[in-house]
Write a protein that binds this DNA or RNA. Structure first.
Length: 462
RNA sequence: GGCCUGGUGGCGGAGUGGUUACGCAGCGGACUGCAAAUCCGUGUACCCGAGUUCGAAUCUCGGCCAGGCCUCCA
């Protein structure tokens, strides 16, 4: 069974072969920390977290290096800092902490490296110097620009030619550019903006160079997998690749597999900060089950657009109710076969077909509900192992249903249920129903079974 | 204007040249003292038109619709 991944550069699903199985590398463009992350920002985080988990399974946890950068200097951060009258570090620390908390709530594992732009300045400057020396960049009016015409493959990733770019240019072209597509590597800082000394004059780096320098510094070329949202294909990843390859003297490819996730739509449009139609993870993890959010993000294929609605979250919660319900009723079953089932692995290995993998989870849950003892034990092991591979179903089933109940309520409910069991044993149906009424008033639903009674807290929200 | 996706049952969503996933919700039944949960069963699904084919929702062409990128953006 081989992992197959869809590569944007070759536009094909290809078998994944790492450069070095003992050192598998992955880089994903991380956040610019000037605000809370929205659920659209979380999609790549969750998707590539699944890739990360899968690679760790295939090559060993110690053999996979995952880097995600933090952009901690840019115009929006500067603006926010100026508005609040604080240093940019105050802004970036605040929102980076929130980002970490939000992504952890969604079940994302910590990445191996989290380089920051402000701490990579030497490498960025050194890379720009190499690009100039290689004839791939030029200085002009205090800026340093990448010379797109010097790189024959420019446009290959996004599938557009330099001519297309001129035809499609919607931006005014700065007069000092040799070609309209040339982009900034270094630019002078405006007044009151953070500034770094460099051989090209005081200033700050362009956005694209940051990622190239970080990849080179933390992972080294070529990396196996480069990921991000599909809006980054052009210009960001196109430019990154051009910089990386040219600075490297064209000796290595930049990334062997380019993975891009589709967007989250809110209504008919993509969710984006500039459109203002965002739902913050920070808020969602409080109004909905974080695990349901993760399920919802994985409920469609990662390259497809996902229409984000309350219904999607509610359906995700319903699906997890079914799965956790099966596990709750199987508390006494000792799990065996603690590996994902073959069908589950097949689905995940086929370019991360998580919807198909989820279907397999339901098949296992059914087996767990209805199978013979031996099959139930295996199904439970496979269900939990499959869940672990995609970062789901790892909580206790009891906590899933009763999680929001505090100790006092739990004690009260348990006492009422004990009374009701006694009443039922005495066939005192009136009393049993009266107690159920009390439980209902507490927002508690009781479920009788042959082996006793369990209960769950009814959700007031999704 | 250039480049690129996608249109599947009430909703979400895989997939495939012929056997028509899966989930959520609904309905019928079983079980239950009654419920809930569970189990069993159930629904004329594949945007339109033409073509290729013994056979297309799946391939080709055309059209319509929706969205993305070309500018900061996951």
């Amino acid at each position: 069974m081989t992992l197959r991944l869809y590569d944007t550069l070759t536009r094909a699903k290809r078998d994944f072969v790492p450069v070095d199985p003992a050192r598998v590398t992955m880089y994903v463009c991380g956040p610019t920390v000037y605000n809370y992350a929205h659920i659209g920002n979380a999609r790549p985080v969750v998707v590539f977290d699944v890739v990360f988990r899968l690679l760790r399974r295939l090559y060993g946890a110690d053999h996979v290096l995952y880097a995600a950068n933090v952009t901690d200097v840019d115009d929006k951060i500067n603006l926010k800092a100026a508005q609040e009258g604080v240093a940019i570090g105050v802004i970036t620390e605040r929102y980076l902490a929130a980002y970490h908390a939000d992504m952890a709530a969604l079940g994302a594992l910590p990445v191996t490296f989290e380089p920051r732009a402000t701490q990579t300045m030497d490498a960025i400057i050194a890379m720009i110097e190499r690009l100039i020396a290689a004839g791939a960049a030029y200085a002009a009016e205090g800026h340093v620009l990448f010379d797109t015409q010097s790189y024959a493959d420019y446009g290959k990733l996004s599938g557009r030619s330099l001519d297309d770019m001129i035809a499609g240019a919607r931006v005014e072209v700065a007069p000092y550019k040799r070609h309209p597509a040339d982009f900034v590597l270094w630019k002078p800082s405006k007044e009151n903006e953070p500034v770094w000394e460099s051989p090209f004059g005081p200033g700050r780096p362009g956005w694209h160079i940051e990622c190239s320098a970080m990849i080179e510094q933390t992972l080294g070329l070529p990396i196996d997998i480069h990921g991000g949202g599909n809006d980054l294909i052009f210009p960001h990843h196109e430019n990154e690749m051009a910089q990386g390859v040219c600075a490297d003297g064209h000796t290595a490819t930049y990334a062997n597999y380019w993975l891009h996730n589709g967007f989250l739509n809110l209504g008919t449009q993509k969710m984006s900060k500039s459109l203002g139609n965002v739902q913050l993870v920070h808020d969602l993890v409080r109004s909905a089950r974080p695990e349901a959010l993760r399920w919802a993000l994985l409920s469609s294929h990662y390259r497809q657009p996902l229409a984000w609605t309350n219904d999607v979250i509610a359906q995700a919660k319903g699906a997890l109710d079914t799965l956790y319900g099966a596990l709750l009723r199987a508390t006494d079953v000792e799990a065996t076969d603690c590996e994902p089932s073959e069908a589950f692995l097949d689905a995940v290995m086929d370019d991360l077909n998580t919807p198909k993998a989820n279907a397999e989870l339901f098949a296992l849950a059914k087996l767990l509900e209805t199978g013979a003892a031996h099959d139930r034990a295996a199904a439970k092991g496979q269900l939990l192992a499959g869940g672990a591979l995609v970062g789901l179903l790892q909580g206790s089933p009891k906590a899933w249903f009763q999680g929001a109940a505090d100790g006092d309520l739990t004690e009260k409910v348990e006492a009422l249920i004990a009374d009701r069991i006694a009443a039922r044993a005495a066939k005192d149906w009136a009393r049993a129903d009266a107690i159920r009424g009390e439980l209902t008033a507490l927002n508690v639903e009781v479920m009788d079974s042959a082996s006793g009674a369990t209960w769950k807290l009814r959700e007031t929200a999704v």
